[in-house]
Design a protein around this nucleic acid. Structure first.
Length: 510
RNA sequence: GCCCCCAUCGUCUAGCGGCCGAGGACGUCGCCCUUUCAAGGCGGAAACACGGGUCCGAAUCCCGUUGGGGGUACCA
């Protein structure tokens, strides 16, 4: 599951900077660089998707790089989650996954060069030191105390980048335009921790240079650190900086950036609830971008051919689960029967199905599957539509029984007639329908009204799959048993003793 | 506090100076279809944050205000 297609060669740090790739020729190289500090969330998925679409459309290369320079927070367990989520979404990588933790020598070398060139200086100030020196200062950040102390690098000493005091650093961004950062507002930032570990700013730039990255497409939250990256990029003499594209963040209903903490955003969770990867892809693609022609349902090929970085919009987007569900329903209904079965089965068979092992009968399910397909928004809902066939014991919703049978004065007589009909009618949807229709007429009500008590008695709920087709699959024995059981359970109002068999117990199970 | 970004229906968005008395989609409301529920069809309500400019003309350009958001770490 590593790289597929494309070369795996790691361009070494000495490669020529790829000139001209910015706007004109050359094939672009992009990277998706998640940090394994938590489960993979939809924001990351959207970023990965955009990078991938961009690369695919232009025949470029998509590099996967794991940013695990923070040893404290990184955990290998999260990496496999990221990889499997990407695969699930159909986002394949051409190179990688590289791991920054395996590339430490490169960062050390770069830091040494920068130090030798006077761009870095050692610093032994603690955070508290800086704070104590400038109590209540208004401009935050490091105060430059060690700038001219000429400390030698060593244990306990961090390396800081000497930022210019004047001028501005310009960041060219495809979605934001040119953004100016006054250099005076950029502190002498740490590039190597006092532990000797590189900080992500350094690692990112060194890697982007050595991997020949031409376009950096990432979340907007990285925009403020971009001038630092630009400074480093230039200090390392690496040629033209990449083209940047900072995507609008994804927010929750309160308009805050999606957080793994407070919001349900794990890609894995959506997969588990039965969201189709193609629906997730389609929905995600539309969060912050829309095709020129306004179409909304686009398959992979269409996304690839329509996607343009320049068309990405720049305001935060709310991750609307309802809209996702809408797309998912669209995609589920578009599945052919065979495919629907293939996708739904994992949610029904033994480990997953909400019924005892062995209860599930695939053949029975297949008969109703076409009707199910039209009625679910997620694969996770499928089981609930057919549990009247497999759940043991069969349960009837209390509320629905009370309204459709208990409080319906005519229900008892109707059910009795239906039971009578069920004993001898042909057992197919048409015949079953005829029985219920006859009972409906006898009780002077419309079929729609008449089917309610029957539905609750046999399927356990007032809403669900079409009744007659469902009963056909349920079988005469179980259907009749359940109707009788409903009568026996004191359906109707008084004790209108039903003729024959009203005493049959728990007819449901069958 | 400081730096940066953003601002069209509840939501995702189209719009890049006249075609906009603002279009589509989700959601919502009504009707139709109908064995329940969905799906589908039809119809409705629903937005250019505010104030100044520029211009013959502004949702579209500029400035300001307000309001959101992000960053401010020896996290990424």
């Amino acid at each position: 599951m590593a790289a597929r297609g494309g070369c795996r060669r790691l361009p070494d740090a000495g490669d020529q900077p790829r000139r001209g790739v910015k706007a004109t020729g050359g094939s672009p190289r992009v990277r998706f660089a998640p940090s394994p500090t938590g489960y993979f969330h939809v924001g990351g998925a959207r970023t990965a998707l955009y990078n991938w679409l961009f690369a695919r459309r232009l025949g470029g290369t998509f590099v996967l790089r794991i940013e695990d320079t923070d040893r404290e927070r990184s955990d290998d367990a999260w990496i496999s989650g990221i990889l499997s989520a990407l695969e699930w979404l159909g986002i394949s990588w051409d190179e990688g996954p590289y791991r920054q933790s395996e590339r430490l020598p490169l960062y050390e070398k770069a830091a040494a060069e920068l130090f030798a060139a006077g761009r870095l200086y050692a610093c032994d100030c603690s955070r508290a030191d800086v704070e104590a020196r400038n109590p209540g200062r208004t401009t935050p950040g490091y105060d430059g105390y060690c700038r001219d102390r000429a400390l030698t690098p060593g244990p306990g000493r961090a390396l800081r980048f000497r930022t210019p005091d004047e001028g501005v650093t310009l960041v060219h961004d495809v979605v934001r335009g040119d953004v100016e950062f006054p250099n005076s507002t950029i502190e002498d930032f740490v590039v190597v921790k006092s532990s000797g570990d590189p900080l992500f700013v350094l690692a990112v730039v060194v890697d982007d240079i050595s991997m020949g990255i031409t376009h950096v497409i990432r979340a907007e939250e990285h925009l403020p650190t971009t001038p630092k990256a630009v400074m480093l990029w230039e200090a390392l003499g690496a040629g033209p900086v990449p083209v940047f594209a900072h995507l609008p963040v994804l927010v929750n209903e309160k308009r805050q950036k999606l957080s793994k903490r407070r919001d349900r955003v794990s890609v894995e969770d959506y997969r588990a609830m039965g969201i189709l990867p193609e629906a997730m892809r389609n929905y995600l693609a539309l969060l912050g971008w829309s095709p020129a022609d306004g179409r909304e349902v686009l398959d992979l090929e269409e996304l690839v051919s329509e996607f343009r970085l320049e068309d990405v919009n720049n305001s935060p987007a709310f991750f609307d689960e309802r809209r996702l569900l809408h797309f998912n329903g669209l995609y589920i209904r578009a599945l052919d029967e065979e495919e629907f079965l293939r996708r739904a089965l994992p949610f029904l068979e033994p480990p997953s199905g909400p019924w005892a092992p062995g209860r599930f009968d695939r053949a029975q399910f297949e008969r109703l599957a076409p009707l199910v397909k039209e009625r679910v928004a997620t694969l996770g809902e499928v089981a609930g539509m057919v549990d009247f066939l497999f759940a043991d014991p069969f349960v009837v919703d209390d509320h629905d029984r009370a309204t459709s049978i208990g409080r319906d004065p005519g229900a008892r007589a109707l059910l009795e007639q239906v039971a009578e009909g069920f004993r001898s009618c042909g057992w197919d949807a048409g015949s079953i329908r005829a029985v219920v229709t006859a009972a409906a007429e006898a009780s002077g009500r419309k079929l729609a009204k008449a089917q309610a008590p029957v539905r609750v008695a046999t399927m356990g709920r007032a809403v669900g799959l079409p009744l007659f087709e469902s009963l056909e699959v349920l079988g005469r024995e179980r259907a009749l048993g359940r109707v009788l059981s409903a009568l026996g359970a004191g359906a109707g109002t008084p004790a209108g003793t039903g003729p024959g068999g009203a005493a049959q117990p728990a007819g449901g199970a069958g």
